[in-house]
Amino acid sequence: MKLISIKRRTKSERRYTQKMGVLYTNVTYIKKYAFGVPFRTLHKYRGTYYGKIKGCEDCVLTS
């Protein structure tokens, strides 16, 4: 059993941008796991319709 591992997981989220309004997109999280429990998110990003990769800092989460 590995003590520390890194996993990538994609899930669909609802985001809000000033230009486009509400946006449903796939967001990929890269997390570090210790003993199978996640303890740190290393990076999160989303792919655009045109294939570009963007960080999630430019979008605001909505509730």
Rank of each mutant, 00 (worst) to 15 (best):
M1V: 13
M1G: 14
M1E: 14
K2S: 09
L3M: 13
L3P: 05
I4S: 10
I4E: 14
I4R: 15
I4Q: 12
I4Y: 14
S5P: 02
S5D: 08
S5T: 10
I6S: 07
K7Q: 11
K7A: 06
K7D: 06
R8F: 00
R8T: 05
R9L: 09
R9P: 01
R9D: 12
R9W: 08
R9G: 04
T10A: 13
K11Q: 13
S12C: 06
E13R: 15
R15L: 13
R15T: 05
R15S: 06
Y16V: 08
Q18M: 03
Q18W: 04
K19G: 01
M20V: 00
M20Q: 06
M20G: 00
G21N: 03
G21H: 03
G21Y: 02
V22R: 10
V22A: 06
V22I: 12
L23H: 01
L23E: 01
L23W: 01
Y24H: 12
Y24I: 12
Y24M: 09
T25S: 05
N26K: 11
N26D: 10
V27I: 09
V27T: 07
T28Q: 05
T28V: 09
Y29K: 07
I30H: 10
K31M: 13
K31H: 09
K31T: 14
K31V: 13
K32M: 04
K32W: 00
Y33A: 03
Y33S: 04
A34I: 15
A34S: 04
A34W: 10
F35V: 09
F35W: 14
F35A: 11
G36N: 03
G36R: 02
V37N: 04
P38W: 03
P38R: 02
F39I: 11
F39W: 12
F39K: 06
R40M: 02
R40K: 07
H43L: 10
H43T: 08
K44F: 02
K44Q: 11
R46I: 02
G47W: 14
G47K: 15
G47I: 13
G47Q: 14
G47Y: 15
T48C: 04
Y49E: 00
Y49M: 01
Y49D: 00
Y49C: 00
Y50M: 15
G51Y: 03
G51C: 02
G51D: 01
K52T: 04
K52G: 03
K52D: 05
K54H: 05
C56Q: 06
C56M: 14
C56H: 03
E57N: 12
E57R: 14
D58A: 12
D58C: 10
C59D: 14
C59S: 08
C59Q: 08
V60I: 14
L61E: 15
L61G: 15
L61M: 15
S63M: 09
S63H: 13
S63G: 10
